[in-house]
Computed example of a mutant assay.
Amino acid sequence: MAISKTAEVYDDLKEELLNGAFRPGAKLAIDGLATRYTVSASAIREALARLTSDRLVVAMPQRGFHVAAISREDLLDLTEVRVEIEARCLRRSIALGDVDWEAQLLATWHRLSRAGTSPEGRGHPDWAHIHARFHDDLVAACDSKWWLYLRGELYVQAERYRRMLLPQVEGIRNIEAEHREILDLVLDRQTEPAVEALTRHMQKTTRRLLESGLVRGHD
């Protein structure tokens, strides 16, 4: 029971960190979190320890746990590396993907497009998770577990920036059309155009965040 409770707290805390519920750099008080989640302090410590592995939390000697910082430099570096790894994974996925992969990708895109065009739009409660699944499915046929692992780690970091800041700066952007363009190119096995479309998709998000002025340089 304790293990499952820790896992539950970990999942809830991770979602809150990704959604920007805690200010970057803020201290995470164990006792306060234990009260908030009605669990023991040890369950909170275990969850926070796991979140340090995700690089969403930083453990500071003698100072406890803090929310990982964000910065312009980090976002630029993250995007550059992410583009390289996503491109590698997508090329392999297109080369190796079969009809079952295509079917799963189409099904996920259909769910994503329905959620995005619902009255809630990208505020739909399931949109972020279906969006992540769509991007996962694009590269699901890649045969390198290590490239996929690294890609997944970077996606979480990029998602933190997107969820924390993009709702404030997104403005007019037809993300559904961007996803459809990527999907069509992937299914047509147009590898390099698909990679270019995915790259533009990621870089556009980064550019909007940087132009907003909400992501500043290191102090």
Rank of each mutant, 00 (worst) to 15 (best):
L96I: 09
A141N: 07
A69L: 15
L105I: 11
V67M: 08
D100V: 13
Y161W: 12
E86P: 00
S42T: 15
A115I: 08
L106M: 14
I94S: 01
Q104P: 01
A103E: 14
L112S: 00
G152N: 11
S118C: 07
D74G: 11
L56Y: 05
A132S: 12
D100H: 11
A107I: 03
R45N: 05
M60G: 00
L112D: 01
A47D: 00
W109N: 08
D54A: 11
L76A: 09
L150N: 11
R91P: 01
V58H: 06
A41C: 02
A107K: 10
G121Q: 10
V67C: 07
T108W: 03
E102W: 03
G64K: 01
D126K: 06
H66R: 15
R91Y: 03
H131T: 05
E80M: 03
P119R: 09
D77T: 14
A49I: 06
A158I: 08
A68Y: 09
A41Y: 01
E73S: 13
P125N: 05
I130G: 04
L150D: 09
D98Y: 06
A95Q: 14
S40K: 02
V156T: 12
L154N: 06
T108F: 06
W101K: 03
R122S: 05
A59N: 12
F65A: 00
W109T: 01
C142A: 15
R45T: 11
V67H: 03
A141M: 13
A132P: 02
V57K: 01
R55K: 14
H135S: 04
A68I: 11
Y149L: 15
R50Y: 09
V99C: 04
I44D: 00
S42E: 15
H131C: 10
W146N: 11
L51F: 02
V83Y: 02
S93F: 03
Q62N: 12
E46Y: 08
H129S: 15
D143I: 07
C142I: 02
T108G: 03
R82L: 08
A49C: 02
V39M: 01
W109Y: 15
R45V: 12
G116M: 14
T79C: 14
L154A: 11
Q62L: 13
D74T: 06
R72S: 10
V57R: 02
S113R: 14
T117W: 13
A69T: 14
V139F: 05
K145C: 04
I70E: 12
E159G: 10
T79N: 14
L138M: 15
S118I: 06
R151E: 09
G152Y: 04
A43R: 01
T38K: 08
L105R: 04
W109Q: 10
S118G: 05
D74Q: 13
A69H: 14
L48P: 00
S71T: 10
T108I: 14
W127A: 06
R122E: 14
T52G: 02
G123W: 12
R151Q: 11
W127I: 04
R50S: 11
A87I: 01
M60H: 05
V139P: 00
Y155L: 12
D54F: 02
P125M: 07
R55V: 02
V58N: 03
A68E: 15
P61I: 06
S118V: 05
G64V: 02
E46H: 10
M60P: 00
P61D: 11
T108Y: 05
V81T: 13
L51V: 03
G152F: 04
C89D: 03
